[in-house]
Write a protein that binds this DNA or RNA. Structure first.
Lengths: 178, 178
DNA sequence: ACAGCTTGGTTCAAGTTTGAAACAAACCTA
DNA sequence: TAGGTTTGTTTCAAACTTGAACCAAGCTGT
């Protein structure tokens, strides 16, 4: 079949998206690097741990919610561990498992860093969006993300006998947002 | 001033955005790596050159439209040059300058790779958006991008005597989209 | 109880990105 | 026109990412 190229509208949207996402991530990385000494992803690791029950999470679960590979997470946690912000513990239920635990120092760093980060996200993104646009953005991104995960999961599910997975419960938590 | 945290809606939107952009870039990178042997950024370099008059662009201009640092572009072009897809020439007007020129082989690779790429972008993004959402996405991203550049440029402009810059003309071109 | 498959994590090398120099050519300005 | 600043680009080391092994521990069927 002959390729269906992007329409002018799609093309404009695509280019705008690329530009915006590149600029936004760069800006946020720079801010976090300066004020927190770490890239955005590492901050997200801390933020996610702080939201988790007991401030700890299994590596795979964390990687999954962050949408990154396990090896990338291993690197991040290793670095954060070296800096004393996270500690590793082995999972008692599953001897293969490894838990990343947020240390007190990690909490402190997170609390010190969060305001500047949120301020930045606000200034660069939300202050420039109307409430409707916030809703639109969420809807668009949720759909896209679902589609992208759905692929893997449905493929995986189709290849599996058991379609539902049991996972350690997450949820709740009121802490320095991300 | 006490930090204004993100509202629940903003928080949801932010998380969804992070997830979507991470998954999307990963998927696109994987596709392009497999079928074209290069990451998305490198493809974009080729695509942008192919749109340019004479299939050539100054390094700085290219970096600017791609929203990346000059040193990042230097690396990309060096690699593409090693692979024979791009060639460097020195700018005659400005002996400091360097031009990146798309080679015939570069054109060929681009033409061979573009359909799969566009197909992917379509499947992962546009096929999941209504026409209105495409418009919304463009508007949102354009605004954000402008804001993010505006900062630098207005800061730079404020620090300059001459507010407008002369740049080699760009525009036009009908080629394997990006 | 054991062979074989799956899952959770890490390791390692190769590739890419970052940011701060280093350079050279162009552009003032006195 | 010499000296000082700015602009265009590259270089270099350190940091980060990727993907393909690899290893150990759980699970399965026999």
């Amino acid at each position: 079949m002959t390729t269906r190229w992007l329409s002018p509208e799609e093309q404009r949207a695509w280019r705008a998206y690329i530009a915006a996402s590149r600029l936004l991530e760069d800006a946020i990385d720079r801010q976090l690097q300066q004020e927190g000494g770490m890239p955005h992803l590492f901050y997200s690791v801390l933020a996610n741990l702080s939201d988790a029950p007991d401030r700890q999470l299994r590596m795979t679960d964390l990687a999954e919610t962050l949408k990154i590979t396990r090896s990338r997470l291993t690197y991040a946690v290793t670095r954060l561990e070296r800096d004393g912000l996270v500690r590793r513990e082995n999972c008692r239920w599953d001897k293969r498992g490894s838990l990343a635990v947020l240390t007190d120092e990690g909490v402190a760093v997170l609390e010190r860093t969060a305001p500047g980060h949120v301020e930045t996200v606000r200034a660069l993104l939300f202050d420039r969006l109307t409430p409707e646009q916030v809703g639109q953005l969420e809807e668009i991104c949720t759909g896209i993300a679902q589609g992208l995960q759905g692929e893997n999961e449905s493929a995986a599910a189709a290849a599996e006998d058991v379609p539902w997975r049991r996972r350690s419960g997450s949820c709740s938590g009121s802490s320095p947002a991300e």
